[in-house]
Amino acid sequence: MQKGKYALYIELKQKILTMEFDQTHSLDELSLSDQYHISRTPTREVLRLLAGEGYIEIEERRGARVKPLKSSTIIELISVAPMIYSAIGRLAVRNVLPAQIQDLKQAQQRFRKALSTRDMHGLIIEEHRFHSIIGQMSSNHYLKPSYERLLIDDVRMSHNLYRLETSEMDARRKLAAEHHDIFIESIEMHDEDSIVKLIPKHFELSRQAW
């Protein structure tokens, strides 16, 4: 992926995850092309890729916009996330590669650094990256796309966990970091039971912040 195209792809993802774009923010193809100094064809390719991943939606005559968070979406997420997250966790323990454990540890280091510096933007990005790596560990072509879509909306809906400056949210953020350490240890030890027990507790941290 060429430099300008890749920069556009990464920046749009991050702005959607961190809620810098509101839920129905329009993405103008021509403006984005000018801003990133690329032609409209690669810009269009990035928008289609993001639509396929679940970040945005593209409608005929209306163009591209950030995918809105509807009440029905939240209800569906709550009903299926624990099941899919648990399945991904089990598969991650079984299929993990050594290099992926190192990637996970590096994401956790960045998460803890963002926690210590109160970098809320960094916390959101690294939380998403941490769990996305676990999805990669699962090495399952059927579950992984659903898991990645869940992560997008889960991170967006838990926005308050990483934005509100309260003692309660501080405590939850620190607990989230502790959970990450347990995830890493459990995966290294190939301990499926610990992963499955921890997943609903970790999910509850973000759910209560919605």
Rank of each mutant, 00 (worst) to 15 (best):
I199S: 04
I187Y: 03
S31L: 08
R129S: 14
H121T: 14
T24S: 12
M19G: 06
Q2M: 09
A177N: 02
E192S: 09
E57C: 06
L123N: 04
H121Q: 12
A171F: 08
L97H: 12
R129N: 15
G89H: 04
K105A: 04
T73Y: 11
S26W: 03
E185G: 03
T73Q: 05
E57R: 11
Q208F: 00
P82Y: 07
L47C: 07
I38V: 08
Q100R: 10
Y85N: 11
L77N: 10
S86A: 13
V80L: 04
R62G: 00
D170Q: 12
N140P: 05
Q2I: 13
T43A: 03
H159N: 14
V196C: 03
T73D: 15
I74G: 00
H128V: 06
V196G: 02
F111Q: 06
M189E: 14
G122Y: 08
H128A: 13
A7V: 04
I88H: 04
Q23E: 15
E76K: 14
L32Q: 02
V196K: 10
A209W: 05
E204G: 01
H202M: 07
H37V: 00
K70G: 00
M169D: 05
L47P: 05
E76V: 00
F130S: 10
E178K: 03
E126Y: 07
E127V: 00
S158A: 14
I184S: 09
H159S: 11
P68T: 11
S33V: 00
H159D: 15
K5N: 01
H179P: 01
Y147A: 09
L77T: 14
T41E: 11
K201A: 06
Q106E: 13
H179M: 03
E168N: 07
K3Q: 11
R172W: 12
S138D: 04
D22Y: 07
I152Y: 02
R118K: 13
Y85S: 12
G63V: 07
R156F: 08
E204H: 07
E57N: 09
I74Q: 12
A171D: 08
K201N: 05
W210L: 13
I75S: 11
R112Y: 04
S146N: 10
E168M: 08
I75P: 00
T41N: 10
R40D: 03
E45D: 11
I16Y: 06
P68D: 08
Q100N: 06
A87L: 14
K105I: 10
L30F: 09
L143D: 03
S194W: 00
Q2A: 03
R112W: 00
S33C: 01
K113I: 06
M83K: 15
E168Y: 10
D170S: 08
K197P: 01
L12F: 06
